[in-house]
């Protein structure tokens, strides 16, 4: 009898105590700085989020951020390594032979350029931003940008033409 009374009172006391402890935690958190970044008011592409009035612990986009792919056709040697590396085949390259020039490579070595891309399409709607295409590129022509806003009303606009095909009908160019 005494034992069960003790347990009864203990249950009530323990429940009340733990509930109060929990309430204390949430009350403390009520006055903490929220972690939310108010996108798009706070531009996370910028280095300093504090300039936008953000006080939380999160940081801006890092240097290695994998946003949309970007291609510089001027230094592209059309070696097709990125096209072969892509697991989902969202890159399409067509090239023509040109006179040999040399280009400064990613690792400092000179790279010969004998081909120039006449067509360099990337389907950003298919791309899964894995980065396998960026790694083998000898010249750094294909790289990640910090852009990530890709909402669009038509799928075709997600096919980006980094090198415009000349003489090809535009409609064909959009199909990968």
């Amino acid at each position: 009898m005494v034992q069960s009374m003790k347990r009864y009172v203990g249950n009530v006391g323990n429940t009340t105590l733990t509930v109060l402890k929990g309430l204390r935690v949430t009350l403390i958190n009520l006055f903490r700085t929220p972690i939310t970044i108010q996108y798009p008011e706070v531009d996370i592409r910028q280095k300093d989020l504090k300039a936008f009035g953000y006080k939380g612990p999160l940081g801006p986009l890092p240097d290695r951020f994998r946003g949309f792919l970007h291609v510089n056709p001027e230094i592209c040697i059309a070696c097709d390594l990125c096209m072969k590396a892509c697991p989902i085949d969202c890159i399409r390259i067509e090239s023509t032979k040109i006179d040999k020039t040399t280009i400064q490579g990613k690792d400092g070595k000179a790279v010969n350029k004998v081909k120039h891309p006449v067509r360099f399409d990337i389907h950003l709607g298919k791309c899964m931003y894995c980065g396998l295409c960026v790694e083998p590129c000898p010249t750094g022509a294909i790289s990640f940008s910090k852009e990530f806003e890709g909402a669009t009303s038509t799928l075709n606009t997600l096919v980006v033409h980094f090198a415009e095909p000349k003489g090809l009908p535009v409609r064909e160019a959009t199909i990968l």
Binding site: P57, L58, P62, R64, F65, G131, E135
Partner: peptide, 27 residues
């Protein structure tokens, strides 16, 4: 979220990292 930030700093992605490579790591 803080771990995501750390790993993003390391490999550029927050969820599907694709960071480990056969024979080593990417970065």
């Amino acid at each position: 979220e803080l771990i995501n930030d750390l790993l993003e700093m390391l490999c550029g992605a927050r969820l599907t990292y694709n960071f480990v490579r056969i024979g080593g790591v990417a970065f």
